[in-house]
């Protein structure tokens, strides 16, 4: 059965934690803890995902086809336990881009309304 792919705009707006996860995966495939650390570093500690929030969001992203699992393997930086890795799908990349454009349009509107400086800080 051929399922009709939903356009990226259908998934917007993304919950903040979900967008942060997609941003982390845009840089390459990651396992759960690497995503958490990436999100925390990228947001300068303002967004801290716990395991429940992270895997709950990943489960929904997997079901929606925005993220895919890759093979399990050990992370040499941590321990010898095998971990599940996640990567963005082409749809996930399109949705992340569409959300970034949506947020960019909002920021530009805020600049025009003088709520933000005219040049990025």
């Amino acid at each position: 059965m051929v399922t009709k792919r939903r356009p990226p705009e259908d998934y917007l707006p993304l919950p903040p934690a979900t967008f942060h996860i997609l941003l982390a995966l845009a840089a390459g495939e990651r396992h759960g803890y690497a995503i958490m650390k990436d999100v925390s570093a990228r947001s300068e500690g303002r967004v801290r995902l716990g395991p429940g929030t992270l895997y709950g969001a990943l489960k929904r992203l997997l079901e929606a086809g925005l993220v895919a699992e890759t093979e399990e393997r050990a992370d040499p930086e941590h321990d010898d336990e095998r971990r599940r890795y996640y990567r963005l799908t082409p749809l996930g990349l399109s949705v992340a881009r569409a959300e970034a454009q949506r947020l960019d349009a909002i920021v530009r509107a805020a600049r025009r309304s003088k709520l933000l400086g005219t040049r990025p800080a």
Binding site: G32, Y33, P51, L54, Y55, K59, R83, R84
Partner: peptide
């Protein structure tokens, strides 16, 4: 506290992440 099927799929990974934390 999580549903059994969610625990079955992600429980081990969540414990690994908790261990890292």
């Amino acid at each position: 506290a999580y549903p059994p099927e969610f625990r079955a799929k992600y429980g081990r990974e969540m414990v690994l992440v908790f261990r890292d934390q």
